[in-house]
Design a protein around this nucleic acid. Structure first.
Length: 570
RNA sequence: UGCCCCGUGGUGUAAUGGUAACACUACUGAUUUUGGUUCAGUCAUUUUAGGUUCGAGUCCUAACGGGGUAACCA
């Protein structure tokens, strides 16, 4: 398993000490000699964009191979040309690499169509498969129900010779779409419906994104997947829980063919509160324009998270953090947010940006004087260095940070109070200026020259520190504040007559102007910052030479906001 | 309704017959030139009932609860 050159390997410190059930199964198979090495694969169908749930599977499969010095392939499970497109193939490759993984081999199930066909003829010759003329509806009826056994197809006992002839003619296009199938001859009375003579091939004239019009018969998932695993020498075929009852069929095909027999192991797929992780629903959100596209920063897709500003490392940490088990669980959305906060706190450079500004004038500041302050880029990382921030007599602060009258627990600026301007001086508020309507238009302060940041020997202590920008030096930016796409914990849980779309959060996006310190200029698309005391933000690709556009990745934890919300801020 | 899988704090994940642990959340408190970060503390008789055993979260049986499954989708 190789590493993509553009990214680091998953953080070793994040590794769990105990082994989950798949690692335990691998250990025992290795010890017992069933396998001698670990080969895995990530097998997406190219019919949609990858999402955070796939990220869990990617981290699992590549991680398992990595841990055991094995290999992990990327294989596109492209057996249904009616749904699959090259656009999806490309996005999937990009997303896997962006997450920090590089596959050992790139394969397509369609590469194995010839081999699959040959194997099918072999099963026919051995009397283990037959051509069935039942219509799709009749096939369903004959299968029986969950409580009653099925009925044998009237074509079940055709001779191998006749089946071979029919199957070859299916291949050459002699029969119309849907008129015949090739089925495995197993047991129409099996309690597991997957074993009631499952369809192996259907006739379908559709243009395939790779094989073009070469084929008019296409293999079904069960017939293609395990055989592809086998061809690639996969040892552990890891998949999600809904394939559990397919395992007997997976095993049946490998046994019937007497080929290399991988072990299929199922785990629970990822669910997260306040989001949907179904390809169908994500597609619907895109097609019906509830979002701007697959990479809308509110989408749980890899491309959406990337544009939102999430880092590959944060996603990987999240994926290992949630664990692997067979229990159907739902992870709190806050854990994903915590993962990105944790990483960005370590790596994001700090900047000061003011929203909803109010003017603060320092009355005792020398007129026209500008002083360059040295501000620390990242208190968590000394190597991040410092930057210069201009301080002047005309500043802007957030109106949230000022109150004419305020409760005791309000640590910010109030009339008659003092506050530290981060990286600058302590200021005392003397007065406010109001317009005719009584709105505060300007805050009048004096600064204390003895309290310069970094060289304050005054001994003065103030409870609060707020951020600011110099009015004459700041730069206006656009900021897109994203919130959760859905307003309910489980969007799928909709009242009768309603759908998950009714649970969309109408306030998931709001755009505001911000006033940033000059050091923000030159920020490149994809650069991430912490706007001090507010949150983490990333430069969006919509940015132009004239204006920087930022996406809010995630806000900082806000214990003051929490107190206010609970009415404890007195 | 048949079959299969799964039930451990608010949410997840451990404990592999021998003291229920860790993370996140929540709540306390400390530190702090970000109400961020960091640090400390508090929060469970393992769904229920039987059984096996010196001893059961773990093994057996049943009930209850949750999920999957009846496509010529994957």
């Amino acid at each position: 398993m190789n590493q993509a050159p553009n990214d680091k390997t998953p953080d070793e410190s994040n590794e769990r000490t105990s082994k989950h059930f798949i690692e335990q199964a691998i250990d025992s198979d290795l010890a017992g000699g069933r396998f001698t090495s670990v080969q895995t694969r990530f097998p997406p169908e190219p019919n949609g964009y990858l999402h955070i749930g796939h990220a869990k599977s990617i981290c699992l499969n590549f991680g398992l191979a990595q841990k055991h010095s094995g290999t992990c392939n990327l294989r596109f499970d492209d057996t249904n040309p009616s749904k699959e497109e090259t656009e999806y193939v490309e996005s999937i490759m990009e997303d896997v690499q962006w997450l920090g993984f590089q596959w050992d081999n790139l394969h397509y199930t369609s590469d194995y169509f010839d081999q699959l066909y040959d194997w099918a003829e072999r099963l026919i010759s051995e009397g283990k498969a037959y051509v069935c003329d039942l219509s799709p509806e009749d096939t369903r009826t004959y299968r029986g129900t969950v409580t009653e056994p099925g009925v044998n197809s009237p074509h079940r006992d055709r001779s191998p010779e006749e089946n071979l002839d029919l199957f070859r003619r299916m291949k050459t296009g002699e029969f119309p779409d849907g008129s015949r199938t090739l089925r495995a001859k197993i047991d129409m009375a099996a309690p597991n419906l997957n074993l009631r003579d499952p369809v192996m091939y259907r006739i379908m004239r559709a243009h395939h994104h790779r094989t073009g019009d070469k084929w008019c018969i296409y293999p079904m998932y069960d017939w293609a997947h395990g055989q592809s695993d086998s061809i690639e020498g996969i040892s552990f075929s890891v998949c999600t829980l809904e394939f559990e009852q397919h395992r007997p069929l997976y095993d049946w095909y490998c046994n019937a063919l007497q080929i290399h027999h991988p072990r299929q192991i199922e785990f629970a797929r990822l669910n997260i509160t306040y989001t949907v992780l179904s390809k169908r629903k994500l597609l619907q959100l895109v097609q019906e324009n509830h979002v701007t596209g697959w990479d809308d920063p509110r989408m749980p897709t890899i491309s959406g998270l990337r544009r939102r500003g999430y880092t590959p490392e944060a996603i990987r940490n999240f994926a290992t953090d949630v664990g692997v088990a067979k229990f159907n669980s739902t992870i709190d959305a806050v854990r994903l947010e915590n993962a990105v906060r944790e990483h960005l706190n370590r790596i994001a450079s700090r900047r000061m940006v003011v929203f909803d500004p109010i003017k603060l004038t320092i009355t005792n500041w020398p007129k026209g004087h500008v002083e360059m302050m040295q501000a620390v880029n990242n208190p968590e990382d000394e190597t991040a260095g410092t930057r210069e921030v201009p301080f002047s007599g005309s500043l802007l602060i957030g109106s949230d940070d000022f109150r004419e009258e305020a409760p005791r627990k309000f640590f910010r600026l109030k009339k008659g109070g003092a506050v530290r301007l981060r990286g600058g001086y302590i200021v005392d508020c003397q007065d406010v200026v109001k317009d005719e309507a009584g709105n505060i238009t300007e805050i009048l302060c004096t600064y204390d020259p003895e309290t310069k940041s970094g060289q304050d020997n005054s001994g003065r202590k103030v409870k609060g520190t707020i951020h600011w920008v110099s009015q004459a030096h700041c730069q206006e930016i656009d900021v897109r504040n994203y919130d959760r796409l859905f307003s309910t914990e489980n969007p799928d849980q909709a009242k009768d007559g309603k759908s998950f779309l009714d649970n969309l959060n109408p306030d998931s996006l709001s755009t505001v102007s911000g006033f940033a310190e000059p050091a923000i200029s030159g920020a490149q698309i994809g650069d991430r910052f912490q706007f001090e005391r507010l949150g983490y933000y990333v430069v969006d690709p919509d940015t132009t030479a004239e204006k920087l556009i930022f996406n809010r990745i995630v806000p900082l934890r806000d214990s003051w906001g929490k107190m206010v919300a609970k009415g404890k801020a007195n």
